Computed example of a mutant assay.
Amino acid sequence: MKLLIIEDDKSLAATLNRRFTKHGFNCFETHQADEVLHSCLQLKPTHILLDMKLIDESSLNLIKPIRAALPKVRLVLLTGFASITTAVEAMRLGADDYLAKPADTKMILKSLTGINSNNEAHEIETDTMSTERLEWEHIQQVLNCNEGNVSATARQLGMHRRTLQRKLQKKPVSK
């Protein structure tokens, strides 16, 4: 399995490289947006971790060209600037998953491979999720990163705490 890590933070890229090498990936790094397509065509990775912000550019505009060059690649977008709007846009453009930083190794590995940390295979959804379901999943992920702190989660999502509490009281939307 070849993993291309597209991340402008070289120390984070090196850390991800070490972590995923231990999990059986042959890892490569690219740090600039203008190198991405060349690296994809040259290396032909099976998996890609794409940072949403490369220096001062959004990497959302790289998803379609990557998908055109490598239609079967498993593409996961990582971002420190998570929002429901960008999550929906990334999935619409062809990303397979969208993870907010900080995402731990187990979460990224699960997203890349479709295997839980206890090595049980799970089904990777092939259908596109509804916007409501994507929003629910994103809220749960941010809430988990904030260790259940509703106020911190509301601030990170840019919504009022009471609005978030109402959304959390609803049952998850099916696909």
Rank of each mutant, 00 (worst) to 15 (best):
I66D: 00
L70W: 02
E29R: 11
I55N: 13
R161H: 09
L99Y: 08
R18D: 14
L49D: 02
N119K: 13
E137G: 07
L3I: 01
H23W: 14
H47Q: 03
A100C: 08
H31L: 00
K106E: 10
L16D: 05
A13M: 02
P45F: 04
L50I: 04
L75A: 01
K10N: 10
E135D: 13
K44I: 05
L99D: 10
V73D: 00
M159N: 06
E123W: 13
H31Y: 14
I84A: 08
S111E: 02
Q42L: 15
L43E: 15
V142L: 05
N61C: 06
K170T: 11
L37V: 06
A87I: 00
L75Q: 06
H31I: 05
I66Q: 04
S11Y: 13
A100L: 00
S59L: 04
I55K: 11
R74H: 13
L168Q: 00
M107C: 11
G148M: 00
L77I: 13
L60D: 00
D97G: 02
L43R: 12
M159Q: 10
R155V: 08
A87V: 00
N61W: 09
L54V: 05
G114V: 03
M107E: 12
L43V: 14
L3Q: 01
S117Y: 11
N146F: 10
T153G: 01
A90I: 01
L78D: 02
H47Y: 12
I55T: 14
P71F: 13
C40M: 01
L93R: 04
I66W: 09
H23C: 14
R74S: 13
L60P: 02
L4G: 04
P71N: 07
M159G: 06
I63F: 07
Q140S: 12
A95R: 04
M159L: 07
V73P: 03
L41G: 14
R18F: 15
C27N: 03
S130L: 04
D96K: 00
H122C: 09
V88E: 10
S117H: 13
R166S: 06
S11P: 07
C145G: 10
M159W: 04
T113Q: 01
D127V: 12
N61K: 09
L12D: 07
Q165C: 05
I66Y: 11
R92P: 01
G94Q: 04
I63P: 07
C27D: 00
N26K: 15
L143C: 03
